[in-house]
Design a protein around this nucleic acid. Structure first.
Length: 531
RNA sequence: GCGCCUGUAGCUCAGCGGUUAGAGCAGGGGACUCAUAAUCCCUUGGUCGCGGGUUCGAAUCCCGCCGGGCGUACCA
């Protein structure tokens, strides 16, 4: 069966510490895009999950006097809670300790090993006993010594398995150079090409001996080793999508049909893991496994939320907790802010006072209040009944319809181009136009004049019809609020696929619902973020 | 060190060779009353990081410097 679905993934989060705003941003971004395509009527598969193996997990668990598995289960629960709170509607959830994932990883490794793509080699070098890893010349201080953080550094040699990256570098360079839209934003491609140029003849170490790390997936061809990071984590994108599902014996396992999903339309990842992990390792892993150029995935690389211009980090203690923010500013308030105040692919500065301000002005005052005033007037003047065929029309009406129509075009162009902030700006232009329209048409005045009855009907109809469009456009961004919005408009059943939005969704005689504040004013203690 | 990105009004950003540099928010003034004291109109505000250069003309292209972010591939 051929590819038919829109397949989108996120990075799988490392279950070593609690989630922060950066994790939340990435998942909301992917969720909005996934919902957008669903609302356009496409079949969508959205995969996310957690990366539970590895050295840091093993070390942290040991430090806390527990085993890796309970430790990762505890952290995994934090992520799951957050995704629930943020309305992240994923279709597939993968954990790297899942049996079906391990099966696919082992199968892939075995095939590549049989194919001569993986070989064993001895590496000799400096090894930090404290950090349990090799250190390189790059880790040396300026005086040539290794810093305090490494503890005792000894000469050490170890056998490991290597993946023949170098055999595929030429192919990858060629593929990237002749293919335009593999990586969004486009300027990142230069990074990859530069990294590739410096990669001559280096293969990738993909194993760890069990006496050093045993919290991982055992190599199928050597029980003394586990595979290390790359084949374990990156493979999730196919194992979670039903790749080689004929290998699985668990009858209860529900996995999608891989051929309908692959290749991925968007691997949503942070800019820190594009090079080398995804753009080089993952692409080459796929190529080595027999995937063709037509079966290569695309990447959507996002930037970071900084805190006052600086990177968020545990050491500076400027971690922002998304759970708290969602509680304080509502789930949709946070989702809106995260999509509205950043340009996809670039960095942005996180500012809680802006989150608060945008909620108040753009959501409560502009969208929420527009709905409220419209439903209120319709209820008061017409018992909530919309008259579509009024026989009245004028330039003012026409200009509001024009604003709606122009948004419909621009919105889709921006959504397809991953310019979500720009799509929101377009919708905002419509609510602005509608609020101005209300001022200029002044239905509260028309209501006092019986000779203006037809015009009053047409003004109310235009406002309500516009709001249905607005709710539809915003639905991927704020599913909960827009659901309530459509309920109040009593129009949930009248909204077609997003691509098919046209003026005239509300039939003549449509009964609107009762107004109820969509984005209630925030009850916040007066605290500024400027401490 | 090297590479990529970035530095524009108080704040967040757009503009990326061409008239007196724009938007939103914040600040100031006014109008209105249907509405969540919401909305609408007007308005204050900028040596476009710094220094050179190219050009008839640069925020916009080039070079250097300074500040910030990320990466640098056996560190998830």
């Amino acid at each position: 069966m051929a590819k038919s679905a829109y397949y989108i993934t996120t990075a799988i989060d490392y279950t070593n510490a609690a989630p922060h705003i950066g994790h939340a941003y990435e998942k909301v971004l992917a969720d909005v895009i996934a919902r957008y395509h669903r609302h356009c009527g496409r079949e969508v598969f959205f995969l996310t999950g957690v990366d539970q193996h590895g050295q840091k997990v093993q070390q942290t668990a040991a430090r806390q006097g527990t085993e890796p598995l309970p430790h990762v289960k505890r952290i995994t629960a934090l992520f799951l809670d957050l995704w629930k709170q943020l309305d992240i509607a994923y279709d597939g959830w993968i954990e790297t300790t899942d049996e079906h994932h391990k099966t696919v990883v082992r199968d892939l490794l075995q095939r590549l090993h049989d194919d001569g793509q993986i070989y064993k080699k001895c590496h000799r070098g400096h090894y930090s006993v404290r950090q349990e890893q090799f250190v390189t010349d790059r880790d040396r201080e300026t005086d040539g010594s290794f810093g305090e953080q490494w503890g005792e550094v000894v000469e050490f040699e170890e056998d490991n398995y290597y993946f023949r990256l170098s055999d595929h570098v030429e192919w990858l360079r060629d593929y990237l150079e002749r293919t335009g839209d593999v990586i969004f934003p486009g300027f990142r491609k230069a990074d990859v090409l530069n990294a590739l140029a410096a990669s001559e003849g280096t293969d990738l170490c993909i194993s760890r001996p069990k006496d050093r790390l045993d919290w991982g997936i055992e190599l199928p061809f050597d029980p003394d080793y586990v595979t290390f990071v790359w084949f374990d984590a990156l493979t999730n994108y196919i194992s979670g999508a039903g790749y080689r599902r004929e290998l699985h014996t668990d009858a209860d396992l529900k996995l999608p049909d891989f051929d309908r999903l692959w290749p991925a339309d968007a691997h949503v990842i942070g800019k820190d893991i594009l090079v080398p992990a995804h753009a080089i390792y993952w692409m080459i892993m796929l190529h080595a496994a027999g995937f063709t150029d037509q079966q290569m995935p695309k990447f959507l690389v996002h930037g970071w939320w900084n805190i006052r211009g600086e990177k968020m980090s545990k050491t500076t203690g400027n971690i922002v907790d998304p759970v708290q923010l969602a509680q304080r500013y509502t789930t949709d308030g946070l989702r809106y802010y995260l999509m509205r105040d950043i340009v996809s692919g670039r960095d942005a500065d996180f500012d809680e006072s802006r989150l608060s301000m945008l909620y108040q002005t753009e959501l409560a005052n502009e969208v929420g209040n527009l709905l409220n005033r419209t439903l209120n007037m319709a209820g008061r003047y017409r018992g909530g009944v919309v008259t579509a065929a009024t026989g009245f029309d004028d330039d003012l009406n026409a200009s509001l319809r024009a604003a709606v129509e122009s948004c419909q075009r621009a919105y889709h162009a921006h959504m397809e181009g991953h310019e979500l902030h720009a799509a929101l700006e377009q919708v905002r232009a419509v609510t602005g136009a509608a609020n101005r329209f209300a001022e200029q048409a002044a239905p509260w005045k028309l209501a006092k004049d019986d000779t203006q009855a037809a015009r009053l009907d047409s003004v109310l109809h235009h406002l309500a019809e516009t709001l249905v469009h607005v709710a539809a456009w915003l639905q991927p961004f704020m599913p909960g609020s827009c659901g309530r919005m459509l309920d109040q408009l009593n129009a949930a059943a009248l909204v077609p696929g997003l691509r098919d939005l046209v003026w005239g969704l509300l039939p003549d005689g449509h009964q609107l619902g009762k107004p109820d504040p969509l984005f209630p004013r925030l009850q916040l203690e007066d605290e500024s973020a400027g401490a």
